[in-house]
Design a protein around this nucleic acid. Sequence first.
DNA 1: AACATAATACCTCTAAAGAGTGATTTTAAA
DNA 2: TTTAAAATCACTCTTTAGAGGTATTATGTT
Lengths: 213, 213
Amino acid sequence: MQPFRILIVDDHAHAREAIREILEEHEDFLIIGEGKNGEEAMKLTEELMPDIILMDIQMPVMDGLEATKRIKLKFPYVKIVMITVSDDITDLFDALKKGAQGYLIKNIQSEAWVDHLRAFALDEVPMSKEIAFQILKEFPQNKAVTKEETPLSSRELEVLQLVAKGLSNREISETLFISEHTVKSHLKNILSKLHLENRVQLTNYAFQQGLIH
Amino acid sequence: MQPFRILIVDDHAHAREAIREILEEHEDFLIIGEGKNGEEAMKLTEELMPDIILMDIQMPVMDGLEATKRIKLKFPYVKIVMITVSDDITDLFDALKKGAQGYLIKNIQSEAWVDHLRAFALDEVPMSKEIAFQILKEFPQNKAVTKEETPLSSRELEVLQLVAKGLSNREISETLFISEHTVKSHLKNILSKLHLENRVQLTNYAFQQGLIH
DNA sequence: AACATAATACCTCTAAAGAGTGATTTTAAA
DNA sequence: TTTAAAATCACTCTTTAGAGGTATTATGTT
């Protein structure tokens, strides 16, 4: 069993240190890097490919919410957990809207904290329907943002949508009047840009980004 | 270009006749069958595999809403359009909750009617976010129903969920401690039961049924 | 004018998916 | 207790997907 590879992003060195001390007691977590702001988070994510990012919300240069949004667009597979002192529910919405899957309060007993993180790492705590509902209620129009900022070209977006609807490469080529070779080229680039492995993961991405109905 | 294969289900013969007259003027629609109630609708769907079902809501024996729910569980690929005289919006929610993708009022000018149906057949009118939101608001707990009534066994449901998360057959076999052959068997049966063609379509099904987060 | 990106296409090769058939064992239900 | 599902595994065969590499032609953008 490989340990979960963790990246910590927090502008306060003492906060990073506190988290490090807690996690180092557990063999299933491995801290592979630390960053001080959103910009560093993006750079480190690309370099280190962590499984999970523990991200502070309040930070200089680029805050955790902005960093989360950008990282999730380029690396949708990475799990991001926001860490914060606040327990204001509107911060939670903001974090989830940007793409974070989890949310942990800093001042919590360390063992419970680790247990939560582990459960999250193992996909045992999916985002609940209630939370999804509340987000939808609060941000009914959060699609336009995504579309503009996708790293994909418009043609790639077309291909993505057809893939995510369940068409084969041949069917896509016939739909778009291009060769199957070209479809494969596009798909190859799409998967590479989003750091995904196959068309089912791409379908997940499409659903989560609201790119298909 | 193949015509869209239509099944009409309505208990009033004159209503079926009216629809038939309208659609027969258009070469891209082909009426392949007619039914008088929900029970007949299910039997005919299995026999004829229509592309689109035009389904009345109010019918004896088994009404259109119940029939829609059952048909969508077994044949998720079939598109169902509810036809009704009512313009009560709660009926629309009910229909969409049961799995119908479209909704048409009977007393409408025939040309506009056909245009709408064609747009729908070509996937040009996805269910809007607003409607999805309203459904969610009105029926926050519509998941339990689905889970009980899936035609899949519990093991098949496990496999489905792993497929829909983007795992390969090998990864699934390692997760469940069974052979890859067995995974293939399950997947084959799942696709067959749901009348789907590949794992991306299955992923769509899983998302739409709320089987994955 | 030079450069970058997007879109197109082809090639090879390996791995994965899916169709078809058949068979055994366990579990649950009639 | 016979029957019916459910879960397991195997073998063959064909098609599709995906990695890796290369190349041409527009279309814009400094």
